[in-house]
Amino acid sequence: MKSLLWFLVGIAGGFVVAHFMNKDPRGHEILAEVDGRITEFTDRIGDAYREQEARMSGLVDDVKGAAADAVENARAAASDAVDSAADAAKKLTD
């Protein structure tokens, strides 16, 4: 509980310091630079995430296509096996 209190005091103190820094032109410039770097970092992370998401989406589409092809091939093989069995049964009864 004591750690939580110190954590909250630290956050509140950080806001107070940032408020006073923002009033000074030099402090305002420093905070603007930090904000710009944070924005650049988050933009890069977002771009990397979207790129990875697109790559994964392409892989998923490829796997779906391969699975559909496998199902179709299995269906065709099963159909051929049923036809062959029917022909063999017909030959036995004739």
Results as ranks from 00 to 15, higher is better:
residue 21 M to H: 01
residue 57 S to K: 14
residue 29 E to D: 09
residue 44 R to D: 15
residue 46 G to C: 06
residue 20 F to C: 02
residue 24 D to L: 04
residue 33 E to W: 11
residue 23 K to P: 00
residue 48 A to F: 04
residue 63 V to I: 15
residue 26 R to L: 08
residue 45 I to H: 07
residue 58 G to C: 04
residue 37 R to A: 03
residue 39 T to G: 09
residue 43 D to A: 06
residue 29 E to Q: 13
residue 42 T to V: 14
residue 64 K to V: 03
residue 40 E to V: 03
residue 37 R to M: 11
residue 51 E to V: 00
residue 48 A to H: 08
residue 52 Q to G: 09
residue 48 A to E: 14
residue 29 E to F: 06
residue 30 I to G: 01
residue 41 F to L: 15
residue 45 I to K: 09
residue 29 E to R: 12
residue 34 V to N: 09
residue 34 V to L: 13
residue 22 N to P: 01
residue 51 E to W: 01
residue 27 G to C: 02
residue 22 N to L: 06
residue 56 M to V: 00
residue 60 V to F: 08
residue 53 E to H: 12
residue 36 G to W: 06
residue 27 G to D: 01
residue 46 G to H: 10
residue 59 L to T: 02
residue 28 H to R: 15
residue 66 A to H: 07
residue 32 A to M: 13
residue 27 G to K: 02
residue 31 L to T: 00
residue 47 D to R: 15
residue 44 R to S: 12
residue 35 D to E: 14
residue 50 R to T: 01
residue 31 L to I: 01
residue 36 G to I: 01
residue 40 E to D: 15
residue 21 M to S: 00
residue 56 M to N: 15
residue 36 G to S: 05
residue 35 D to C: 06
residue 56 M to Q: 14
residue 53 E to P: 01
residue 55 R to S: 13
residue 27 G to R: 03
residue 38 I to M: 14
residue 39 T to M: 06
residue 49 Y to G: 04
residue 65 G to S: 10
residue 38 I to Q: 14
residue 56 M to Y: 13
residue 63 V to Q: 04
residue 37 R to D: 10
residue 22 N to M: 06
residue 29 E to K: 13
residue 62 D to S: 11
residue 44 R to Y: 06
residue 28 H to C: 02
residue 39 T to E: 14
residue 20 F to D: 01
residue 66 A to D: 05
residue 64 K to E: 12
residue 57 S to A: 14
residue 37 R to K: 14
residue 37 R to Q: 13
residue 57 S to F: 03
residue 60 V to K: 13
residue 66 A to W: 08
residue 38 I to P: 08
residue 24 D to Y: 06
residue 63 V to N: 02
residue 22 N to D: 09
residue 33 E to P: 01
residue 63 V to E: 04
residue 54 A to W: 03
residue 61 D to T: 00
residue 61 D to L: 09
residue 38 I to E: 15
residue 27 G to W: 05
residue 60 V to E: 12
residue 40 E to F: 07
residue 32 A to N: 09
residue 53 E to C: 03
residue 48 A to I: 00
residue 26 R to N: 09
residue 54 A to K: 13
residue 30 I to T: 07
residue 50 R to K: 15
